[in-house]
């Protein structure tokens, strides 16, 4: 069976992570921000799976399971917050949430 260089998998994860980061930093629509966060989490999961494949162990997959659980919980709470925000401000622009300005 052909082999895959392990760094290629990790680099793919890094690229996905960076794209997600750009998304988080650039978008003003909070739904897109949340989606970009999902991309970043997913990239983290990918890195764990690559690690699991590198050692041939199942532990990496278990970590991925934890991440997916975390993502599910985070999305649930995050979407709840978005709904609440939309109800209050009638917008999805995260810049309106700047009351913490010092």
């Amino acid at each position: 069976m052909e082999s895959i260089p392990v760094e290629h998998g990790l680099i793919l994860a890094a690229i996905l992570f960076s794209i997600g980061l750009i998304g988080v930093l650039t978008r003003r629509n909070i739904v897109f921000v949340l989606m970009s966060l999902e991309i970043m989490l997913n990239a983290g999961g990918l890195a764990f799976i690559v690690g699991a494949a590198r050692w041939g162990h199942a532990e990496g997959q278990i970590m991925f399971l934890m991440i997916i659980t975390l993502a599910a919980a985070e999305v649930a709470v995050g979407l709840g917050l978005i709904i609440q925000m939309f109800r209050r401000y009638k917008t999805v622009d995260i810049n309106v949430l700047s009351e913490m300005k010092g």
Partner: peptide
Amino acid sequence: APSIMAAILLGQLLTVLSSIDYDLVP
């Protein structure tokens, strides 16, 4: 700004990751 930031981060990650040299057989 976000692109520059992400590019720097990616560059660093690539530098670090390229030092790994292992072929995995899935």
